[in-house]
Amino acid sequence: MANKLIISLSPHVHSGDSVQKNMYGVLIALIPAFIVSLIYFGVGAAIVTLTSVAACVFFEWAITKFILKKERTTVGDGSAILTGVLLAFNLPSNLPIWIIVIGALVAIGIGKMTFGGLGCNPFNPALVGRVFLLISFPVQMTSWPQVGQVTSYLDAETGATPLAVMKAAIKAGDASILEQLPGSFNLLIGAPGNCQMGAGSLGEICALALIIGLVYMLWKKIITWHIPVSILATVFVFAGLMHLANPVYANPVDVLLSGGLMLGAIFMATDYVTSPMTHKGMLIYGIAIGFLTVVIRMFGAYPEGMSFAILIMNAFTPLINNYCKPKRFGEVKK
């Protein structure tokens, strides 16, 4: 016989699943949102996304090659591309290139590679990059371009986001300010409609596109329903109670559909590496994120709390993993 027999322990077959398949699966799920952002923000969306992806891939490659001096770079696994896209989706479409590059460096360099690369990072790299930029460049990061300016990039006119409106209503204690909101349906499809309102980050503009991505990921079994559903349900219930108690707090449907909540719940909080491992843990994690988000949105200084809520819960993930064990087969209640 020509070959030596190969010996290893069972199982001798594999499902064929791979890291790449999962990463590219998430990227495919992001395509609808990307198309929508191109329609609404045009050139700006394209420039921001491409810059972010290119910078993330470059930094990942450069760090593995020159600093960690590994023979094989990990660019091929698609995780750097995914970080790049998610980072871009969390940025306004009129952000200058140099800021995006800094964000990518922080996301990959500090958020991911410092801890040992894929699988070792405690915090979601894209969110680390985004929050770093938000704190370092608050002006650029919070001047949201209005939708519909397809050909403009840095010179796009900016406006207030629905979240800013909600915040203003709470601050003023005046529920009538909320009438400026574009309405639930417009928030769902992201259409500017008649209102001349700024929209927000380029990925969060259309809740419907993100939900399509969620359905795709659930269908392909890339993620389970636990995290997104628990976040959305918590936000809905908590915001609903607040709305009932005092109408200056926006109605829960608007809260769900506005800002980065959908993007965060579907794509950021479900990041494999930084979310808990068991279903019970995922539910706790999701509920906590939902709760924190609403708390920050309604009582905090920032209009948006998703990024902070996810990062805070990322820090708790090891603890959740430690205490939430899956239900063992035949477990007897003590």
Partner: peptide
Amino acid sequence: DKEAARAEAQPCIRCAKCVGVCPMGLE
């Protein structure tokens, strides 16, 4: 020989799929 060889191991991405499929409820 192609079927038989295992693919190279990559770092754990903590996707929790193994937890989901374990018939004994282990991690």
